[in-house]
């Protein structure tokens, strides 16, 4: 292995979990997330001279992973719109106006270790439809603002807010149903 390859291997090992996690949360599919991660690192290799040792390499990789995931989802959605767009609206809990009935826990995961938390959250995210999961992930995991999300997704600010509101309610229900927080679910 050449020194350049060794450097890039070390670079990949430092960031591959973050890149894969970013992609898999957005696309909710392991195989597609791996394809996207591969694409991200191929782009990173082209810019490796600038990225190597840069403080902003992590941010650059996260942005590229997010953008490639959104591009992938948009392509997929266009291709399958006819087949999938008319799915039932109750899939993610469409009740945006009513308040949610729960006890008031600190989190949904009292006494659950981090790895199990991750698995539960990912499973719950996987139950949400794309139109709710994507803005929710961008807001709560990628820490984008409502405006930035609206810009990235090409939808109105009001739609982003509504989708995130519904997504939170659906995620909370899914997490509450997951069993670990059965004791905190009121209704």
């Amino acid at each position: 292995m050449s020194p350049a390859e060794a450097d890039f291997t070390a670079f990949m090992r430092a960031y591959q979990d973050m890149v894969f996690t970013t992609a898999v949360r957005l696309v909710a599919n392991d195989a597609q997330a791996e394809d996207i991660s591969q694409e991200v690192f191929l782009k990173a290799f082209e810019h490796f001279a600038a990225l190597q040792g840069s403080q902003t390499a992590g941010g650059w990789l996260k942005t590229v992973a997010t953008n490639l995931s959104l591009n992938h989802l948009q392509r997929y959605r266009k291709r399958w719109r006819f087949f999938s767009e008319l799915q039932r609206d109750d899939a993610g809990g469409g009740d945006s106006e009513s308040e949610i009935e729960f006890a008031a826990p600190e989190t949904f995961f009292d006494g659950v270790d981090a790895e199990e938390r991750r698995a539960l959250v990912e499973r719950a995210l996987g139950t949400l439809p794309d139109r709710q999961r994507i803005p929710l992930v961008l807001y709560h995991f990628e820490e984008l603002s409502y405006d930035e999300i609206a810009g990235k997704l090409g939808v109105s600010l009001a739609k982003v807010k509504t989708d995130i509101l519904r997504a939170r309610a659906a995620l909370a229900k899914a997490l509450a149903r997951s069993g670990t927080s059965r004791e905190i679910l009121n209704a």
Partner: peptide, 28 residues
């Protein structure tokens, strides 16, 4: 007890915050 939208946002943020990254596949 009912949660307002703001309380729900904080609850979700607390619940998903600090979750560790998923391990990338070995094949990557």
């Amino acid at each position: 007890m009912k949660l307002s939208h703001e309380e729900l946002e904080r609850l979700v943020q607390r619940s998903v915050g600090g979750i560790p990254d998923r391990r990338a596949p070995r094949s990557l």
